[in-house]
């Protein structure tokens, strides 16, 4: 049986909001396997972003453990977490988060320079079909274009994990399709474990596995025996 690349065991996350204690995650356990495309689905407040933040080393769980390649990352200090993100994760954000003072190519180059075994930045742009926009600044690009640059930036590191936080959340349907196609292709061609959080249930049909979250707990896990192509879904 395949060993998990990333594993959360009995994760609980609580925080204070004024006088109220919010239980964002309740004793949640989940495993992710190399190369799989996983969608975390749930409504706002279900705990999906909190889970992604904890898995990505951006936040710490109140209790429980997180393992990456059998290393206990939940005990890492800030510096170790930075190294973990630097070496192992490619992030894709809802608002693209491209650095405004760098061109598309430079945005990719900057991050590629961090990696031990990066892909050529130009190649990453080419995979996303954005090579013709290499010298453009983010302010000169549309939302879809920016998101595709953001994906190129994430894959250029050749990292084993790809975390996508509502990647189509700010895009219209047509542009969203282009972005999802790119994500699906990257997952298939590069083999990075891709975790996408979304509240859009249509996207779930693209995944190997869909994890339904509600009130900080896993409500259901669905394995898609036959994944759909992006062109076959709509929302």
């Amino acid at each position: 049986m395949q060993k998990p690349i990333l594993e959360a065991r009995n994760i609980t996350k609580t925080y204070q909001m004024g006088e109220v204690t919010v239980h964002a995650l309740k004793n949640l356990s989940i495993e992710f396997y190399p190369g799989e495309f996983v969608v975390l689905l749930g409504h706002s407040g279900s705990g999906k972003s909190t889970l992604l933040n904890i898995l990505g080393g951006l936040d710490k769980a109140t209790s429980g453990e997180v393992y990456f390649n059998h290393q206990l990352i939940s005990e890492y200090n800030e510096n170790q977490l930075t190294e973990y993100r630097r070496d192992s994760i490619g992030f894709i954000f809802q608002m693209y988060n491209l650095l405004p003072r760098l061109t598309a190519l430079e945005n990719v180059q900057l991050v590629a320079e961090l990696a031990n075994d990066p892909m050529k930045p130009e190649e990453a742009l080419m995979i996303l079909g954005m090579e013709h926009r290499a010298d453009h600044f983010p302010s000169q690009l549309s939302g879809g274009e920016q998101q595709r640059i953001s994906i190129a930036r994430a894959i250029a590191k050749n990292s084993p994990l790809l975390f996508c936080d509502e990647p189509t959340g700010a895009l219209d349907f047509k542009t969203g399709v282009l972005v999802l196609e790119a994500l699906q292709r990257v997952n298939q061609e590069m083999g990075a474990t891709t975790i996408v959080i979304t509240h859009n249930s249509s996207i779930a049909e693209l995944a190997d596995r869909v994890i339904f979250l509600k009130d900080g707990q896993i409500q259901n896990i669905k394995v898609n025996k036959e994944k759909k192509s992006v062109r076959d879904i709509s929302w």
Partner: peptide, 14 residues
């Protein structure tokens, strides 16, 4: 702050 946070999330050291 947004740009700086992004860089840190992407793996840049403080």
């Amino acid at each position: 702050d947004w740009e700086l946070s992004t860089m840190m999330i992407l793996g840049f050291r403080q």
